[in-house]
Design a protein around this nucleic acid. Structure first.
Lengths: 367, 367
DNA sequence: CCCTTCTTCTGGATCGATCAAGAAGAAAGT
DNA sequence: ACTTTCTTCTTGATCGATCCAGAAGAAGGG
């Protein structure tokens, strides 16, 4: 009758953990009653409950084992976020930080935890997703979306993908990147600019820096970079400027320093561009630094328009003209959709954007 | 023998999930063999394994249920972070973001997930901690440390507390706030300053803004604010200036805007302080804004020294003189201690800090 | 006094996996 | 030919809880 417990020996250290059954025995009640003392106070008399809890305390019983409870109830009390890049990047880029903030705020309201999955590379990412004890997933824009999508879909849990094609079988949250970019470019065209440089987000996430690989764009699944580029072109087309040479550089990792170098190259060409279209505010800041390096005045000699409207955008000098997008709300909306999934078909939410004109754009110098 | 399955009816919708047993039956093997196909490829022939996995795919079996696996193996594959403030704050404050980044980078190396617990208030925080399926905890400086500490300790898991007293029964990670602050103040004293204003982090986390509540300081468990204040005083004492009136304002939520207001008040007194000791860089930035509001030149009329050395510190104008502390490394070190707990006694790590002199401090104007 | 209802508590079944021990057959050593 | 070893696979027990149906006793209604 006496179960021997491995090599324990009662010595200070890893003794077997106290379970609900131990507690029940010690209190002279059934497991269910002990369980109810924690979960259903109305199911037993207050006096008994107090006694059970007291004995639990004495035994060092912290409460029902979370893993066992999850298994039995089928709920984890948390949602998972799958990142497309290293977590280090996720906690560095202001865009994803704001997104996480939005997710976190909704989690907090729901009393749920937020599980951030490690980035393990395309081959392994399925394992992490498969093994995550969560009630739903949020997929934050990534480069190998298919692998992630398949793994998440297999879990059959409420899921939302951000900045993903609406052809995916789950709900999506997005902005209209293309028309937002179009508006940014139209603003510059309206100011008389005719020579542009583009600083593009990386297309494949493979650490490449250099001229935009237009030929690779078709491969893409996660497409802000592509959509924004098309938006820029749309504006040119609409203005009858389709023949303009739109020189574009890809910048890896949304890095200010790389953007500075790329912008330096763009601005060293003759004739020099009078405006830079940056696909993110960080890239735009890099362009500002390059302008300083070259002794160019912004917006006198050069106009710069960004994208995102991160907090830094209005803190830099000159304050950035940029496309405001609701970063936090993206996260919040995604989380809400996970907690309260739409019945029937998945929902595809498109959040509004707005061009915010500040001090980094002005009339073209040669206009 | 046929178990009826609730009200399922096979209709499109929530059909019972496929289990390992279903897979085993469909493949004509035992549960264990099916399990091994996923977890121990070496335990069965490659041919059989391929067949099992194929059938799993066909059945839509995503892989072993994470909750069941956790229960059986006793491991969750993730560590939890307990915040002392709302998650919104955690994802806003550059200090905690950097900390999380450090934690995340180590998690990624270990292939583990990062579970961020919701802030539920002092009364409920125990529940969240009790119910978290994790392999260990990191406690990030909070205001009701006792409640958190008790709940975490009850879980009997490897845990690390940040900026917590070494009297706690778990490992701790910290910097020497007191001597770092002392160094910052000594720097100003060396420049001839004799009239100081202090911008203090909130002592109780209750949203209070106003004169520093020195009388409350004894109550504290989580003590950067108190230690830094003491450090400032230490420097004054060492210089024989113990009688100086060290006027201090508490600023709630480490907010730049609130700091600006508080600094405005400090700087409106006659005679005006010539230097401001800020307990964080955000507070210091608030002081810079107040200086601008008052038409004061920094460092000509006013010197400002911050604390933390967040990225913003060197981006603002003038660049902040501040105490550099290894924010990311704090998170990384904490995570490492959770993954590889010290045998025997808990470890108390104190990371080095360094005063970084930039452009926001200069000779006292009246010296 | 009997029947119903409510409160309080209990035991067995179950969630879905992994583990330990061992069986069956093939391969190898003597 | 017989024992040993290795490979491959299986059965029963177990992880620690929650859920369901029902029992025992108290309270209330006619």
């Amino acid at each position: 009758m006496e179960t021997s417990v491995g090599q324990d020996g009662q010595s200070d250290g890893s003794q077997r953990a106290v379970t609900l059954l131990d507690l029940a025995r010690a209190a002279g009640v059934s497991r269910t009653t002990a369980s109810n003392a924690f979960n259903r106070p109305d199911q037993l008399s207050p006096k008994l409950r107090a006694r059970v809890l007291e004995i639990a305390d004495k035994l060092g019983y912290a409460g029902p084992n979370p893993m066992a409870r999850m298994l039995r109830t089928g709920r984890a009390g948390s949602i998972g976020v799958v990142f497309g890049k290293s977590l280090t990047y996720g906690f560095t880029d202001p865009t994803s930080i704001a997104f996480l903030k939005g997710v976190a705020s909704v989690c907090e309201k729901e009393g749920a935890s937020l599980l951030i999955l490690p980035e393990t590379g395309e081959a392994q990412v399925g394992n992490a997703i498969q093994g995550a004890a969560v009630d739903g997933f949020i997929i934050y824009c990534m480069h190998y979306l298919t692998a992630v999508n398949d793994a998440v879909a297999a879990r059959q849990l409420p899921s939302v993908a951000v900045s993903a094609p609406e052809t995916m079988p789950m709900s999506t949250i997005d902005i209209d990147d293309r028309s937002a970019a179009r508006e940014a470019a139209a603003h510059l065209i309206g100011l008389g600019h005719r020579r542009f440089g583009v600083l593009a987000l990386d297309v494949l996430g493979d650490g490449y820096d250099g001229p935009l690989r237009i030929d690779q764009m078709a491969k893409l699944e996660c497409t802000p970079s592509v959509d924004r580029y098309r938006g820029y072109r749309d504006a040119l087309d609409a203005a009858g400027l389709q023949d303009i040479d739109l020189r574009a550089f890809e910048v890896s990792g949304n890095s200010e320093d790389q953007a500075r170098k790329a912008a330096f190259k763009l601005l060293s060409r003759k004739p020099r561009p009078t405006a830079i279209l940056a696909m993110s505010d960080r890239l735009a800041v890099g362009a500002l630094m390059a302008a300083t390096d070259l002794g160019l005045d912004v917006p006198g000699d050069l106009s710069v328009v960004g994208f995102d409207d991160i907090p830094l955008a209005k803190a830099v000098t000159p304050a950035l003209t940029t496309v405001h997008q609701p970063l936090e709300e993206k996260g919040a909306a995604a989380a809400r959709l996970v907690f309260h999934p739409p019945k029937g078909r998945p929902r595809h939410v498109v959040l509004p954007t707005e061009l915010v004109v500040r001090n980094s754009t002005g009339l073209a110098p040669d206009a």
